[in-house]
Amino acid sequence: MKEDLPTQRIDAAGWSSAELLAKLQGFQEGDRVNVQLEGQKALSGICAGIDQALTVKVEGAVGNFACLLASQATIDISGDVGDGFAHSLISGHANARGSAGDFLAAYAGGGFVSVLGRAGFRCALGLNGGDVFVRSSVGDQAGCSMRQGTLVLGNGAGEQLGAGMLGGTIYVRGEVKSLWAGLRNIRMKDPDFLRLSLLLARAGIKSDGRDFKAYAPKAAK
């Protein structure tokens, strides 16, 4: 680990997403980078396609499709993120301290996506193996068409939770407005609690997961 390495600062005011990505690609594996975006228009595609084990802290809000197809990196965004955050994430950790727009972590095939604020419509759409955590409320149809992976919702869910879900598991704490007809409540066992508590710990939340309920599609085993 390179915990003791100094963080390198980039003032990206006025830069395009492509310029920022090119700059980030010049860093070494394990480097820690702080990117200043505050006061700038929210750029789309920030950190898209980044494929190095960097730790990137972005100060400010970002636009749509940030972290698309990203892998290995740990990306922490201090502000809000737009629609399609961490779309098709491959691996690594994408974290937003603000709120996320619609289609959070759509089709993410791996890695971990966490949002400490709210998330919009159809979060975890078509989730394909990644793990997603939203601390505050989410919009309707969370977990829509999920295939694999885990969605953890810390403050309830909107209408039609898990609509069209094919696989994976949803853990919810709080009120669910309505469930999709093909979804069922499953009894949580010790491995579920362990898995859930580890995911919550990764998002910086200490909990044993005893106050969560688990859901899976009826067709799935």
């Binding site: 595609g45 749509n64 698309l68 197809l69």
Partner: peptide, 9 residues
Amino acid sequence: DFVTAVRLG
């Protein structure tokens, strides 16, 4: 935005 992100990605 999607085109930009895919291009970068």
